[in-house]
Amino acid sequence: MRIALFATCIVDAMYPATARAAVKILERLGHEVVFPSGQACCGQMHVNSGYLQEAVPVVANHVAAFDTDDYDVAVAPSGSCVASVKHQHPTVARSCGDKALEARATAVGAKTYELSELLVDVLGVTDAAAQLGSFFPHRVTYHPSCHGMRLLRLGDRQAQLLRSVKGIDLADLPEADQCCGFGGTFSMKNADVSSAMLEDKTANIAATGATLCTGGDASCLMHIGGGLSRQGSAVTTLHLAEILASTAEEPASVTGEVRVSTGKAAR
């Protein structure tokens, strides 16, 4: 299968290792990965902040980059950005009265998948250790991000994939379904409430005794990781793509270059 990677702007600019991990996983399964070079961002920051006019060119750019027959399916390592592509893009196009863009956006959305969704539903991955060679000997807890959970209905796809990684010690996160408080510009406009939500999330993470918290959305992980770092915690965050790509021969770096950490994280 020819798979187009939508890296998402935050992973492209801040967490390139996550995108490289996604590429590795897909290639290990024997698929060809392409990277449409015109891609930039899904535009949900604009939409969710009320700047619909400003979102239009961002959405149009994404549609232009992905509206080709050059690939079979598109994938992104983010539930939130995929939900935006699937649900928000046609609405944005409609809001500016662009029927053609709406139709193209709907078509792009229909063949765009979140990473775990693609792995489980389309590529038939049920056992990461056996099928991907995934090996990650650490105590890990998992935060299911809201948009993957509630907009894409990912269910336990991500958790099941993690559970099937060799060596992993997956600790249940108390109140896992509670939002971490990120919410895009909400974290700045309502910084106090956002921080209060984050405080409870990081306390729950600490209670698991895990050395790192994983999830399917780099933005939420940046938020949680940023909070842990500020609190002086040794716990770090790592995208699940990197755990799935990690093998005995080539282990994921858990204190890699863009992790915020005190440097005492799990070895």
């Binding site: 801040m14 390139p16 974290s187 405080e199 940023g226």
Partner: peptide, 20 residues
């Protein structure tokens, strides 16, 4: 406005180069 973020959260140093 970004001070709202750093009131309770750090931002990691960016990587050497983008994925792109």
């Amino acid at each position: 406005i970004a001070a709202g973020w750093t009131q309770s959260r750090d931002i990691p140093a960016p990587p050497q180069e983008s994925f792109r």
